[in-house]
Design a protein around this nucleic acid. Sequence first.
DNA 1: TGAACACCCATTGTATACGCTTTGATGGAT
DNA 2: ATCCATCAAAGCGTATACAATGGGTGTTCA
Lengths: 247, 247
Amino acid sequence: MSQQEVMHEHKPARAGGRKKGKDGDGAERHDAIYHTISDAIIEHRLRPGARLREDALADVFGVSRTGIRKILQRLALEHLVTLTPRRGASVTRPTAEEARDVFATRQLVECGIMADVARHMTSADARVLRELAARERKALKSGEQSVAIKLSAEFHTRLARLSGNTVIAEFIGHLCSRSSLILAVYGTSGHLGCESHDHDELIDVLEAGKGERATAFMGRHLKAIEASLSIVEEENEAPDLHHIFSP
Amino acid sequence: MSQQEVMHEHKPARAGGRKKGKDGDGAERHDAIYHTISDAIIEHRLRPGARLREDALADVFGVSRTGIRKILQRLALEHLVTLTPRRGASVTRPTAEEARDVFATRQLVECGIMADVARHMTSADARVLRELAARERKALKSGEQSVAIKLSAEFHTRLARLSGNTVIAEFIGHLCSRSSLILAVYGTSGHLGCESHDHDELIDVLEAGKGERATAFMGRHLKAIEASLSIVEEENEAPDLHHIFSP
DNA sequence: TGAACACCCATTGTATACGCTTTGATGGAT
DNA sequence: ATCCATCAAAGCGTATACAATGGGTGTTCA
């Protein structure tokens, strides 16, 4: 019900296209839709469990179901949405096990690239990252959790890209997206995501070229995030109506 | 070509279908096709660069292009095929950089899970893995490189699954598939893939619970594989004809 | 009154048709 | 003779139509 407002930018169709009026930009259009939906999920404007009906999305974005299906499949392969055979798509609700595995994996890979990142980081890179961290802090302070969460994921993703290893950077990007989902389900309302100044400190250490210290710092940082969650198996599917309404 | 007989029943669709027999297997059918194509790529029966035309595949497998497109997209997201906008699909030809990144990543993650694998491995697991290793050695000896390559990838993938971390295991599976492609492009005809007895030795160490030694062993193992390749940037697409013909 | 069955609707799965882009060829002009 | 332009064909991109399934609801019988 609340996911409706996500798609405000209706779809002025492709009327205005330049030169080749047609939809030469069709591919880009799909990519844009993908990012719109993806962002909405990462920012928790589409909560886990939310259903994503194909023709609803189709006419919101002004494309046919064919294109939407393609996008949903892509999201499914990234584990952001779950495709149940005859039931359609819905935003993935990560299990406790998945949550633990994702963070264990992040611990391994994000720590593992810190040395490389420290080696490659330029002052320009540091500036961009600090800018991100600043925006994140500001969003956090002004209560815009959605924005803060997305910025945090983007920070980690960009950081990974500095390792120079495209393969692992892409993977870390996916892990960060999934982490946003995990925060949505298992996050305690108190503090969410990364501590305010952790990211800034991390940049300092990295810019100083201290790879080993950065590795340790990232390890603590991720552990802190995970510790702030309450990852407990909730009574899945067909749950606890009894438990809810009994007292 | 053994899949031909599958397709003669062109698409009487589900006309005559026995009651529900129907396409409860529709999804499974697509999955089967996916694995068929995927295996063909991993086994080098479809070499990098090979074009995969949609309607050709469609009528080979007796489904419509719609289903094929879905499968090709999935393969594309796993980097096994490359989708060029108006030109269709072709088996990915990994770049040298990609090859290096894949192996660097494998070094990090596969070594990183050895401790967990050593902890979880049961004698039953060891038996299964030894069986795989034996089949791989046999295939290698009898000159069936295709089979050996696939078995090697499967060995590493199964091993990763023993870590208990589904997320990282899936990732490693993808990396192994991509490695098969890399072998196809950069492999020197001499020896390919894993040394004959490496896998057996690794199982011994793991079964003995020596996590650290297993980590080191895996590190050497992967390094040996990478060293057996000749990863050099080949003049990619429309390259340096100038450079080639100038002197 | 409760449970089971049947029907209907909502929604996905699949195929096909059409349009556009690109590639390769052929013919004409310089 | 070579180069360029126009045209034809082939293959991908998108939309739409149709079939089938599963769930929800209403009704009926015990």
